[in-house]
Simulated assay, not measured.
Amino acid sequence: MWNPDVYLAFADHRGRPFFDLLARVGARSPRRVADLGCGPGNLTQTLSSRWPDAVVEAWDSSAEMVEAARARGVRAQVGDVRDWTPAPDTDVVVSNATLQWVPEHPQLVVRWADRLAAGSWIAFQVPGNFDAPSHQAVRDLGRQPQWSEALRDFPFREREVVLPAAGYAALMTDAGCSVDAWETTYVHELSGEKPVLEWITGTALRPVRAALSDPEWEQFRAELAPMLDAAYPRRADGRTFFPFRRIFVVARVR
């Protein structure tokens, strides 16, 4: 389950890559815009503001996220992005921090390019931080004897589950697109007692939470917290700097 409130705790930081991605989409008057992995809908709303004449459709696999999006007036539906098929009038497809959860997403975006009309846009961004200290700390703790049995099915992602920017550029060029691909490392300035723990609680730790009972979950967080504190020390002024690499792709179907 996704928790919209936890996810939105860092809404400003999480939203910045979305706007950096959309800034490179040159569509002027799209008929239909699809937001795949819309989350709680706070960013989807901005698509309607930018393109007021477009039909904006939104998908997310989480019923909780879809409920939150609908509460904002977004026309969202529950669905797996792997099952989505573009309607004939789809001119823009956006997927923000979603495709990293889909192992076969390189084949998926190629399929979208094949089914979209010439001139359509595909824009997506994915995290590129799977080797970051935050993820390594989760892996290291999860392999400790006290957790190895409970987390035996946890997807310990040892390597990048996404391509580098150059890999996506080659992939989408071969699919018949003109491509703009790049990478950015944001250094997020966070505040609070355990900000990195709270950040990954809303995203990377979801599978851990699903595998543990309530008491186990609290114990896991308690053991993880000092590991994250060591990796991302809190400054004397209360700030914690959290580097986060992301990969961006904007492709236009030729």
Rank of each mutant, 00 (worst) to 15 (best):
A97S: 15
F18S: 14
A27K: 15
W51E: 03
A34F: 08
R24S: 07
R14C: 00
V81R: 04
N42Y: 00
G15W: 00
P106L: 02
V66P: 05
D83Q: 10
T98E: 03
L99W: 02
S95R: 01
V81Y: 05
A63K: 09
A118I: 15
P86R: 05
G15N: 07
G119R: 07
L47E: 05
S95K: 09
A34D: 03
V56C: 11
W112Q: 00
F124N: 05
W84V: 12
L47S: 10
E67F: 00
P106V: 11
T90D: 00
T44P: 00
R32F: 10
D20Q: 12
T46P: 06
L116D: 00
V56K: 09
V81A: 12
P106D: 02
R24L: 11
G39S: 11
V93Q: 01
R75T: 04
W112P: 00
V56L: 12
S29V: 14
A71R: 15
V94I: 15
L108E: 03
W112D: 02
R28K: 14
L116H: 01
V78P: 02
T90R: 04
L47I: 12
F18I: 13
W59R: 12
R28A: 12
V66T: 11
W51S: 04
G119F: 08
R50A: 14
Q107N: 14
L22W: 15
S120Y: 03
T44K: 05
A23V: 02
V78D: 06
S95P: 12
G73H: 03
S29K: 13
A117M: 06
Q77G: 10
V81K: 08
L108N: 04
R72N: 07
V78E: 10
W59E: 01
V92S: 05
W51P: 05
W112H: 00
W101A: 13
P106F: 06
G79A: 04
G119I: 06
D89C: 07
R70H: 09
V78Y: 02
W59M: 06
V33E: 07
E104R: 09
T44Y: 01
D60V: 02
D89W: 11
R16I: 08
F124T: 03
R28V: 07
V92E: 01
A123V: 10
R111M: 02
W101R: 10
L22G: 05
D89M: 05
L99P: 03
V94Q: 09
R32C: 10
D35N: 05
A68K: 00
V66N: 04
V81W: 02
A68F: 06
A58C: 03
V56Q: 10
F124M: 04
A63T: 14
A117D: 06
V109L: 07
R70Q: 14
L108F: 02
M65L: 12
L99Y: 01
R115Q: 13
D60P: 04
R70A: 01
S61P: 06
A58D: 01
Q107K: 12
P40M: 12
R14S: 03
R50L: 15
V66A: 07
P30T: 14
P106W: 06
R82T: 08
G26P: 07
M65G: 07
A123G: 12
W84H: 07
P88Q: 10
H105Q: 14
R14F: 04
Q100Y: 12
T44I: 11
T46I: 13
S120Q: 01
P86F: 09
T90F: 06
P52D: 12
R115S: 04
F18N: 13
D83T: 15
A76W: 05
L99I: 08
G37I: 00
E67L: 08
